[in-house]
Design a protein around this nucleic acid. Sequence first.
DNA 1: ATAGGTTTTGTCAAGCTTTTGTACAT
DNA 2: ATGTACAAAAGCTTGACAAAACCTAT
Lengths: 304, 304, 304
Amino acid sequence: MTYKVLDSSAAPLYPIREVSRLTGVNSVTLRAWERRYGLIRPQRTPKGHRLYARDDIERVERILQWLNRGVPVSQVRELLDQPQAAETSPPQVGDWDSQRQHLVHAVDSLDMGRLEALFNQSLALYPVSLCIAELWQPAIEQLEERWSDQFGATLQRRLLETFLRTRIGTRIYHANQSSNARELVVARLPEDSSGFWALLMGLAASAAGYRVQLIDGELPLGEFPMAIDCLGAKALLLASGQAERGEVVRRQLPRLAEQAEVPVCLAGPIARIRAGDFENTSVVLLGEDLGQAVGRLRSIVDGG
Amino acid sequence: MTYKVLDSSAAPLYPIREVSRLTGVNSVTLRAWERRYGLIRPQRTPKGHRLYARDDIERVERILQWLNRGVPVSQVRELLDQPQAAETSPPQVGDWDSQRQHLVHAVDSLDMGRLEALFNQSLALYPVSLCIAELWQPAIEQLEERWSDQFGATLQRRLLETFLRTRIGTRIYHANQSSNARELVVARLPEDSSGFWALLMGLAASAAGYRVQLIDGELPLGEFPMAIDCLGAKALLLASGQAERGEVVRRQLPRLAEQAEVPVCLAGPIARIRAGDFENTSVVLLGEDLGQAVGRLRSIVDGG
Amino acid sequence: MTYKVLDSSAAPLYPIREVSRLTGVNSVTLRAWERRYGLIRPQRTPKGHRLYARDDIERVERILQWLNRGVPVSQVRELLDQPQAAETSPPQVGDWDSQRQHLVHAVDSLDMGRLEALFNQSLALYPVSLCIAELWQPAIEQLEERWSDQFGATLQRRLLETFLRTRIGTRIYHANQSSNARELVVARLPEDSSGFWALLMGLAASAAGYRVQLIDGELPLGEFPMAIDCLGAKALLLASGQAERGEVVRRQLPRLAEQAEVPVCLAGPIARIRAGDFENTSVVLLGEDLGQAVGRLRSIVDGG
DNA sequence: ATAGGTTTTGTCAAGCTTTTGTACAT
DNA sequence: ATGTACAAAAGCTTGACAAAACCTAT
């Protein structure tokens, strides 16, 4: 067992309690990680006390990123030991965080070319559900939050909308061509100003094999029964982000759900925010995560 | 009795329930046809469950065609075993009037399949400018007029919008890839509730060789200068149908036109209706006809 | 029972709960699929815990697609093991390769309905120049090559010719109606047995805005001067694929080029093959790629 | 069309092991 | 600080079950 050489240079070193505070990882856990998996190997004082360098703390943060993605602790070490392949090439495999940052920045600066490259690249490399869960959903949440502050960001919103509409629309179109599966109507809640969630929901459902009829403009709730009927849909899937003045929806949606002859489902952030409003109604809550939502949909549509 | 050879190739096989769902023939009936007349002979699993290939499903559909013509089930088999003559009705050429009627009817009855066929067929046979001038522009005018009466037609509106967005968006996207021409920003006037005119305008401009950045959502007029700037556009093209309360636009648009460093143009029905409002301002009126509008644009953009 | 080789590269591995979350498939079900049908075989830790790679997750998604199309679980495995089959990879967005394969196959099997669908769909979604460059030109090259071997393929040839003549002819006709641009005569070389290249060339030129007069039957070179003259053409555009015994052309074409009062241009594969033959003559070689050919044409016709 | 028996397939349960964060004694 | 211990959560396997879907024959 070799300890790092104590470097007398002016690099700051932190004791374990500080690292714990900075990263949010219990110090006991930090020690366990070191002992069990050799994940981090800080310097030691002559008495044996741990002294963490900046690099070590960054390493802990990278560990946390992997954990957040669902990778088991026991598997993280190998991932960290191959940093050059992973970290050096910017459009790298699996680095969703940096991809998301790039994405957000591309939208912010109206760099449509970059946006396009990121879209193509992500969807070419990973399964749709992963792209949505790891990249697009978080990125849009981040953007929405940022936009809620500033006023003048309508342009970014609109351009991203236009962009996603075309791309996702084309994908859905082609998928529909070769699918005989149950038809879904995917739409946004009337109060949702941006159609992002409906678009992503449509993409997710289409990738899962459903035939999707997307309605990406505002449509009064009252017209949905006709839509379901005319289009022969097996379920109605409504998606939305925030809902500011949800009164109308709260009252009308349960009624729609009873009236309709097919399941009426709700997904996206609103399904979390307004969860309480729809208890004991026929409205099916599919949760915030769009990937999971599609999963749950399966048992509802195909089961019923 | 010979069953088909089990083919190890990757042809999907469907159980009887799926065949029943796809063809509308009760599964009991399907079995009866097989037992009594040997009409279809699907593969079987080792345990005896039927597995239908695509060919089998098509066969069922042909059976239904004969039945619809009044042929008794017992006679169908002989008919199927004969090579069938191709029966294709070639699309009529140049009959724009009837095409438009079909189009309007397809939208009215939410027959998305028909809508798609008409779109594909028209654009495959005729130049874009002709399709717009003879088919899409008149059809949308007709629809808009009809919709202005009824209230509940939002669904039709939205579905047509969604449809056109995807198709036109894709076309513009690909045209942009292979074009180095002047960039245009095409958008709708803030007051235009439907984006049809902006979409058609974008299609026309793109087909004429321009790089088009489409903004198909509502954007406050105040944000356009930034849009033009960031996107490096050579002109701003606003399109719109009717505009009821045009006060805001009437006042703001001229100001925008003076402020902007590139020509600000107006096209679509509004350019006729509000023609008087913009005399003696910097706003360039391109007229109602979108094809002509693009023509005039050339002298403005490429000339300047 | 063989486990996958543990790969030391930095690929993230996910435990079953994460896969379940991402795909929406209950983890119990995932295990059942593995046990019963061997559908997915993830790596294992030394203690037997499953570790799914990204590939595995994609595999689960593909499974779900088949399930949604109604294929029974027990049948899915075979489908997954044959990924090259046409059914498995539905025509993706911009996936020209697969579109071309479909096209070639449709022609081969005389499936005119499919041929028409592909024609319509490609031209409806993408700009003409792109369709030619990415789909039609390569497809025809592929077909020509295939046909050069077999003898009995004349039927395919003729049917494709008839098909393209009608479609492209209609398009050119209508484009001419609304164009005031320079007139071109597009024809095939007398020795070219099939008119494909002339047809595509005509389509490309027409889409680029020229008025095109198409001559799609064989015409002796000697008659072209009169044709040019009578039709008031600004250039003569000859297109051809292979040319076996090019003697006649080699001698006559330069003479024609000198004689004629307008540029005489050559495009298509022959422009590459016989490039050497026309050095130091007045014949303008536009190259094999028809899209580029039109581009070069512009400087020649509009410049001269 | 119904009846009666079989197959398919998602889910549950029991019993045991592994993983992993935290607590406690040294 | 270290190492052991512990407990909750998550996994694994085998076996079984039940609803839905199928089959044949009447």
